[in-house]
Design a protein around this nucleic acid. Structure first.
Lengths: 303, 303
DNA sequence: ACTATTCCAAAGCTTCTACCTATGGATCAA
DNA sequence: TTGATCCATAGGTAGAAGCTTTGGAATAGT
């Protein structure tokens, strides 16, 4: 007994004729006839009396009818239950984002909400490494991360945006790009204290330190880029931070900043698990995030 | 989307593993895997997240789950709704029987009820011709009739029982078999007034009258054999009736009766519509009626 | 750290099923 | 009787559902 047969049964019962029901169903009469017979066989009793004047429900058919209607109703209800998600009209999208991204990609979430007003958005993550771990563990479907990152078990999109990280300080005299040696000579505050060695920017700095045989241990570690810049503004230590982030936070006016030598470039990409298994809402979110990152690319690096 | 796939989905969701669910379902893992994928395709969204640690329901899957349970429940309820009828534990059997049969086959209904206590029995019919018409029209599934009868559109079983109809009268002098001439000379009361020409016994008598060129018009017509015998007992007219019927009614002791010449034999058979479409209860009733008629055969005609 | 086990997906093949067209028998209306 | 209608049967095709085998990836065990 299949849903198909149940629907055929209902159509036949309503039409009172196999020929007519078959026409309404868009199938041939012998097909309908056979399916009805199979249904009867599977339930073990005749559901119709085939008489000259058409079909009549047997006693068993009369008992079966309301149950068949219920099965058909619940079947369509089951289909409809996920229609909202499929059509991006409801549901939840959980999207990962490195902490500073929330400032830079601040326009992303409002844009998404205006496109899909009824989809609940949950933005998760304080660090690229954490976002990658969450995606790997299946707790997130996708997110934006800074590179480089451990990409095992992940699908990584193209690099759509990169920006320069600069040295933010309070010394007016410093106007030339600062090398790794110069950086290590002065007190330094870095964000993402909780993830330390896994933070992409920190890993780049750490590698530079290794090339000159110096250990890389920041003097101060704080959780967020905003906190690091605030400490830099107080003059206690200099900070390395993305220029767009500092700009979004208003520090480009209040602090001096110079490039590193060689320039420290932060690159960003979207990671996700198997794209085929992404929810519709997440797919839309990724698409939108890509557009925003391309937009930022044009804005900050107008070749 | 089929019931099968819904059940597979439920099993997979419960087991949290395709491999384990497949084993519980008694199918191979790739089969289950493919069916789940087809289900997801038909609803348009992924229902499971395939992660390393097994399956997890997506948001869509979680919404779908209760609906799937409902469909599965309704499906089994629909199957169960006709199980009682299939297993002959409930339902109704409408069985036709010529009027006098109710006396002769009086043991049939109690026997049926003791076999199937919860099946409602409706015995219908006052005359063989009527019973045949009702079966033809689909209002009855089967019944016992006296032959001959118009068998078009009917399935007729074997003749399992026949009995003699005798001439019941109050004249002690009459002890020899009575011919059709003798019968027509005296007042006659016949049953089955409402069906007149179509009554099998009357047709036999009518044919005999035609062979001698006499019209056959009974003096008195009543509905039932019992009424005819009662009138015969009053001496108003003689009656032609089945001996077993008269015996069942107690008239064999109170009335004289002689055979006709030649003997008038009433034969009985079971008619039904297409045996393949008979309800289980009716099939049982037919079987039981056959047994009873065979029993009567042994009882009244012990060769 | 390497092996073993577990789990899901892919490939190739067989069998069954849903579907079709064409045809036949039976009934009802004209 | 003819025509129309209706359901059942026959025969054949394409797709679905099933199996076994194989492969890749990850967790777990020693």
């Amino acid at each position: 007994m299949t849903i198909l047969q149940v629907n055929y049964f209902l159509a036949a019962a309503a039409a009172g004729s196999l020929t007519q029901a078959a026409e309404e169903l868009g199938i041939s009469q012998p097909t309908l006839s056979e399916q009805i017979r199979k249904l009867e066989q599977s339930v073990g009793v005749a559901l119709f009396t085939r008489a000259k004047q058409g079909l009549t429900l047997t006693e068993a058919g009369q008992r079966f009818l309301p149950h068949a209607r219920k099965v058909a109703r619940d079947y369509t209800a089951a289909m409809d239950s996920v229609a909202g998600i499929r059509d991006r009209q409801e549901g939840t999208v959980a999207f990962g984002m490195f902490n500073s991204g929330q400032y830079v990609l601040s326009g992303l979430i409002p844009a998404f909400r205006s496109l899909y007003p009824n989809i609940h958005v949950r933005v998760i993550g304080s660090n690229s490494a954490q976002v990658a771990d969450l995606v790997r563990a299946g707790r997130l479907e996708a997110g934006v991360v800074a590179l480089p990152i451990d990409a095992r078990g992940l699908t990584m999109g193209d690099v759509l945006w990169s920006c320069e990280a600069a040295y933010f300080h309070t010394k007016p005299a410093l106007t030339e790009p600062v090398t790794i040696e110069g950086l290590l000579q002065r007190p330094l505050v870095l964000p993402d204290s909780g993830w330390a060695e896994n933070d992409p920017t920190r890993r780049q700095l750490s590698e530079r330190a290794q090339t000159i045989g110096m250990p890389f241990i920041p003097d101060i570690e704080v959780e967020t880029g905003a906190a690091a810049l605030a400490i830099a503004a107080s003059g206690t230590a200099a900070a390395v931070a993305s220029v767009p982030v500092a700009e979004a936070l208003g520090y480009t006016n209040r602090l001096n900043y110079v490039s590193l030598d060689p320039p420290l470039i932060e690159t960003f990409a979207i990671i996700s698990r198997d794209p085929a298994s992404l929810s519709p809402a997440t797919q839309s979110m990724i698409k939108l995030a890509e557009e925003h990152m391309r937009m930022l690319h044009r804005q900050y690096q107008p070749t």
